[in-house]
Design a protein around this nucleic acid. Structure first.
Lengths: 342, 342
DNA sequence: TTTCCACACGCAAACGTTTTCGTAAGGTTT
DNA sequence: AAACCTTACGAAAACGTTTGCGTGTGGAAA
């Protein structure tokens, strides 16, 4: 089991100095053609690869982007990562992904760990717990040490940095408008508790749309779900015998669960009740009926976030000082769950 | 924007040597209590964190595990990662995730990049292209340089290393047996082309099960799909007017597509035709009807793979020499798509 | 023959740590 | 007063690179 070969070893074998080897491999004119070829042949033979760690230490940059997301088993976040990777690879950056598992502590640990040498900058969507706790010291500390941070999706208003978001409120409004436009009047919403920033924004969009259409908002048509994993019974109770003609669900899970529950209660989607979701994931696409939804364009978000970050990292001083917020357009994807039937 | 503080800076400020600072922070008895406290206070104040890069260089280990998977937007792989992270974090390892996007070249690049200093060992599931190309030099090279590799799920028989797999063939047999046991006789299979190792194994399991039940195998009931993204028309043509009472799909997508196609053709699942899938992902769980399937226990796979790798990394010489293959049990998850109706 | 200039290469510092070893100062023994 | 031992700290090497600068050798010009 041969070890990784270093410049020093090559130098010793060839009886030249380390610097000669280094320069030869870089085709420096300082070194004779003869030596250059000899060194390069030897390096190829032994499969020499410069040690990134040493390079990072020397250059004081890692050419690595750290991505921290709340959940790794989550379609939307992985699409964002896809976008980040695309841009990063183009620009010669590596991507490290860590999951906070929605835990504040793990978010802090991961960030500090990556910040202490492993990455040059960060793209991050904050954990649920962090949003609840409103403790952002780790993020601000990271930034104050000169490492740029780009927040996406679940962002924090109080932290001043680059951000990539969708207009959740507008997206929700679009969704609700769509329901209204096909003739629905009694629209229920399945949403999250308010401390989840995107949930709250989507609720607001729903309310705005209603107001714009002069539809009275009714508290009894709003369900704020805390325990996402056990939402079925909650949704079932909520929907039972309710006089409604449409449901807006702020995520895929709520949407498919609603369909399931309604089926069990003898209602047909979309004939009896229209359903619209949020996030264009696998479920929405393949479900029967396929679900009309609001696409967040996750990959685009990743692309934009990565670009913002790399701009900062390689930035001339001009770009370094200002912070930008990119708003990605959402779009309505019409599918079967909101067929116009009235 | 203050920069990251180093030992050298602390030393200068406090007018002591670098080694004194280092020792003081480690509570070495060599240093007077007085100095120790002074140094620690100062370090806390300036939020000193040792630079991981420097540590990695010095210790010649990174305490990082590299994970390379074919697709990041894929439920099964992300569950495996979940398992890896669990173990890794317990043992003080960081996890770096890279996606090969099923491209051989990107797999090579990622592996070489991580191998040149960023990770101590690897957990990897090979890209489709790699399986097709049968070029494993990058993996063997990595291992020959002393970095352990654990292969999982999409493994390579020819490469000698630790492996974590499920018994795909047995799982498929279980699935097929289940269909047979509820009275199905004419069972079609939707599978992949043979160069995908797991696809081939599952096809074999299906055939074995048929033979064990003395059911004649029929070529016209086997569909090997190459282009996964456009499988719907292919499946539709294949299933049209076919006299069958069950379908075994080797992945979730094929399974839900089959249900969809059958619905369109006026057949009901499970009443007219039973369907069983493979992989217990979001789709299977939430689909209507919910899909009976074979669970691969992805998280377990990740856990086992991580343990194998860490054993090798921290191993006494004994463990270092032998290679183990862990086979994770699959289990049948019965849901609505194979309700016993006959 | 002396002076000069390419040429081809080596030295050493630097990145931030840890750790082994050396050593000055001061106190305690004889 | 000489010898010795603690105590408390510093110097330096090492990990693997890159790079500016110094330098020895040889040949060409004067």
């Amino acid at each position: 089991m041969k070890q990784k070969v270093t410049l020093k070893q090559i130098a010793k074998e060839l009886d030249v100095s380390i610097s000669t080897v280094s320069k030869a491999l870089k085709d420096s004119v300082e070194i004779s053609l003869d030596t250059r070829q000899k060194v390069k042949a030897f390096a190829k033979l032994y499969n020499y690869k410069p040690n990134n760690i040493a390079l990072s230490l020397k250059n004081r940059k890692t050419k690595t982007i750290g991505v921290i997301i709340p959940e790794i088993v989550h379609h939307f976040f992985t699409t964002v990562i896809g976008g980040v990777e695309k841009v990063a690879n183009e620009k010669g950056y590596n991507v490290i992904i860590c999951s906070s598992n929605n835990s504040f502590d793990k978010e802090v640990i991961n960030l500090e760990m990556l910040a202490s040498g492993s990455a040059d900058g960060f793209i991050l969507s904050v954990a649920k717990e962090t949003q609840l706790k409103k403790d952002y010291h780790h993020i601000e500390e990271t930034m104050s040490q000169g490492m740029p941070v780009v927040l996406f999706d679940r962002i924090i208003d109080e932290v001043v940095c680059d951000k990539v978001i969708i207009d959740d409120s507008k997206g929700a409004q679009t969704a609700t408008n769509h329901l209204l436009s096909i003739g629905c009047k009694k629209i229920a919403i399945l949403t999250t508790v308010d401390y989840i920033s995107v949930g709250k924004l989507r609720t607001n969009g729903y309310l705005r749309a209603l107001r714009a259409y002069d539809v009275p908002e009714r508290e009894d048509l709003i369900l704020k779900i805390e325990d996402i994993d056990n939402c079925e019974s909650e949704i079932s109770d909520f929907l039972k015998n309710k006089d409604i003609d449409a449901v807006f669900a702020v995520n895929e899970l709520f949407a498919v669960t609603a369909v399931k529950v309604l089926n069990n209660q003898g209602k047909k989607v979309p004939d009896d009740i229209a359903i619209i979701g949020f996030t264009d994931g696998i479920l929405s696409k393949h479900f029967i009926p396929s679900l009309t939804t609001i696409s967040q364009h996750g990959e685009d978000m990743g692309v934009r976030a990565a670009k913002l970050l790399i701009d900062k990292l390689e930035g001339d001083e001009a770009a370094t000082e200002e912070y930008r917020t990119v708003i990605i357009d959402t779009s309505l994807i019409q599918r079967q769950s909101t067929k116009k039937t009235k």
